[in-house]
Amino acid sequence: MTEYKLVVVGAGGVGKSALTIQLIQNHFVDEYDPTIEDSYRKQVVIDGETCLLDILDTAGQEEYSAMRDQYMRTGEGFLCVFAINNTKSFEDIHHYREQIKRVKDSEDVPMVLVGNKCDLPSRTVDTKQAQDLARSYGIPFIETSAKTRQGVDDAFYTLVREIRKHKEKMSKDGKKKKKKSKTKCVIM
């Protein structure tokens, strides 16, 4: 069974824990209790493949930012979460993405942009803004509501699919490099 290491990042209060708990335990946590770091595991079937999701729910508070490099190193894919009623959390996505790329030393890291709290009427981040940002990053965008469960499975499952595509691409690139290195030079 394939294991996928997913990391949920975003500013404090955007609903990272609520999304994760909704996926794992099928219930909505409405009281806000700032996370330092929590880890969850769940076995699911995605596109006919049974897999184990190892999900790291991270601290959004700035005082825990020193811990970010460590979990970013171990993560295979990242859910970059903002709240649709919090423009600052949307603007912060850029910083999370840049930090992930720096730590992973790669421009090509599996990510999904997630606009959470889409059940709320007080939207300050337009869907088109988020779609445009995701398009500019070359990553999928999904709106979710941890409260109603809308888009929750889709967000995590899409990230797994992005990781699969990335692994497939990397193995193809690896095979191309191996083929090239088999060419021999004969000096007579």
Rank of each mutant, 00 (worst) to 15 (best):
A83C: 08
I187R: 11
K147M: 06
V9P: 15
K104F: 15
I46D: 14
V14K: 14
V14F: 14
M111A: 04
G10V: 08
E98L: 02
S145A: 15
T127H: 06
G10F: 15
D173I: 03
G138C: 05
E98Y: 01
K182E: 04
A11M: 08
G15D: 02
E162A: 06
K179M: 08
E91G: 07
Q61D: 15
K184V: 04
G115D: 05
R161C: 13
G77K: 03
R135E: 14
G13A: 12
G151H: 11
V114H: 02
M111Y: 10
K117G: 14
S136R: 07
K184E: 06
Q22G: 06
T183C: 03
R161A: 14
G12L: 04
D92A: 13
A130W: 15
M72D: 03
T124D: 11
N26P: 03
Y71T: 11
V29I: 07
Y137V: 13
K117P: 01
S65P: 03
S106D: 14
I21E: 01
N26W: 13
E168M: 13
V103Q: 04
L19E: 13
L113W: 14
K177S: 10
K180L: 04
A83E: 14
V81W: 05
S181I: 08
I163G: 02
A18R: 00
R97V: 15
D105P: 05
E98V: 02
K182M: 05
A83R: 07
R73C: 09
G138I: 04
R73L: 06
D47L: 07
V152N: 07
E143G: 13
A155F: 12
V114W: 01
S89R: 05
I21R: 01
V9H: 05
V45A: 13
G115H: 12
L159N: 04
A146I: 01
V114C: 06
G60A: 00
T74N: 12
L56Q: 02
N86M: 03
A155Q: 10
I139A: 14
V109G: 03
R68I: 01
L133P: 13
V45P: 13
R135S: 09
V14E: 12
E49K: 10
E168R: 09
V7F: 02
L120A: 11
D69H: 12
V109R: 04
L133I: 08
L79I: 12
K104P: 15
L23K: 12
V9R: 08
K88M: 05
S65V: 07
Y71W: 05
K101E: 12
D154R: 07
T183G: 04
A134R: 15
N86R: 11
K178F: 09
I24W: 13
M111H: 01
K178S: 07
C51L: 14
D30A: 05
K178R: 07
V152D: 09
M188K: 11
I187H: 07
T158M: 07
V125C: 10
Q61A: 14
V186Q: 15
D108R: 11
C118F: 09
F78H: 05
V125W: 10
D30Y: 06
I142M: 03
Q70T: 15
M111D: 06
E31S: 02
G115L: 11
G10S: 06
K177L: 11
Q131G: 12
I163V: 04
R73W: 06
V8W: 00
R41Q: 11
F28N: 00
V44S: 10
S17K: 00
I55P: 01
D54W: 14
T183I: 09
D153H: 05
F82G: 15
E98P: 03
S136L: 11
R164V: 05
A83N: 14
T58A: 02
K128R: 06
T158A: 14
E107L: 09
G60R: 00
A155L: 05
K169Y: 14
V29K: 00
K176Y: 14
C80A: 08
E162D: 07
F156R: 00
K167P: 05
V160W: 07
V152P: 10
D119T: 14
G48T: 11
I84Q: 13
M111P: 02
R73H: 14
S106P: 06
Y96H: 07
E143D: 08
R149E: 09
N86H: 05
V109P: 04
Q131S: 08
I100F: 06
V9W: 02
D57K: 00
N86D: 13
D126N: 06
I187T: 12
D132R: 05
I100W: 09
H95Q: 12
V14D: 11
K184F: 01
L133K: 10
N85Y: 08
D108H: 03
L52N: 13
V45H: 11
I46R: 14
V44I: 14
R68A: 03
D54V: 08
V29E: 03
P110F: 02
R135F: 05
S145E: 15
T50C: 09
F78N: 11
S39H: 05
S65N: 03
M67Y: 09
A11D: 09
Q70V: 14
G12V: 07
V44P: 04
L23D: 01
R135Q: 08
K167C: 05
E63K: 02
R123H: 09
V14M: 08
K178T: 11
R164I: 05
A59V: 00
K101S: 12
G75T: 03
A59K: 00
G75R: 03
I93V: 05
L79Y: 03
H166L: 08
K101G: 13
K169A: 03
A130N: 08
M188H: 14
K169S: 13
V7K: 05
Y64N: 01
L52T: 14
G151D: 03
T127G: 07
A146Y: 01
I55Q: 01
D126V: 06
F90C: 06
P121I: 08
G12M: 14
I142H: 15
T74V: 10
Q129H: 07
D30L: 10
K178Y: 06
T58H: 00
M111L: 08
I24E: 01
F156T: 04
D153F: 06
A134L: 13
C80S: 04
E162L: 08
Q131T: 10
I187V: 09
R68H: 02
R135I: 15
R149C: 05
D69A: 05
F82I: 12
M188N: 12
I46F: 11
T158H: 13
I24M: 14
P121F: 08
L19V: 12
Y157H: 06
G115C: 13
T74A: 09
H27Y: 15
A83D: 15
C51E: 10
G75P: 03
V8G: 06
D47I: 02
T58V: 02
G12P: 08
I142Y: 14
E31P: 01
T127Q: 06
I142D: 04
I100M: 13
H27C: 15
D69T: 13
Y96A: 03
K165L: 11
G77F: 11
G13L: 08
G13K: 10
K167L: 06
Y71E: 04
Y64R: 01
F78T: 02
E37V: 14
I93N: 04
R73K: 06
T87R: 04
E3N: 15
V103D: 05
K165C: 05
H95E: 04
H95R: 13
K104E: 08
R123F: 06
K42W: 07
Q70S: 14
K165G: 10
C80Q: 06
D173E: 05
Q99N: 05
I84W: 13
Q25R: 03
Q43Y: 05
Y4S: 13
L133T: 14
D54R: 14
V81A: 06
D153Q: 07
K176M: 07
E98F: 01
M170L: 06
K147R: 08
D54T: 13
C80K: 02
I55D: 00
I46M: 12
Q99G: 04
S106L: 08
F90I: 09
E76L: 06
I142N: 04
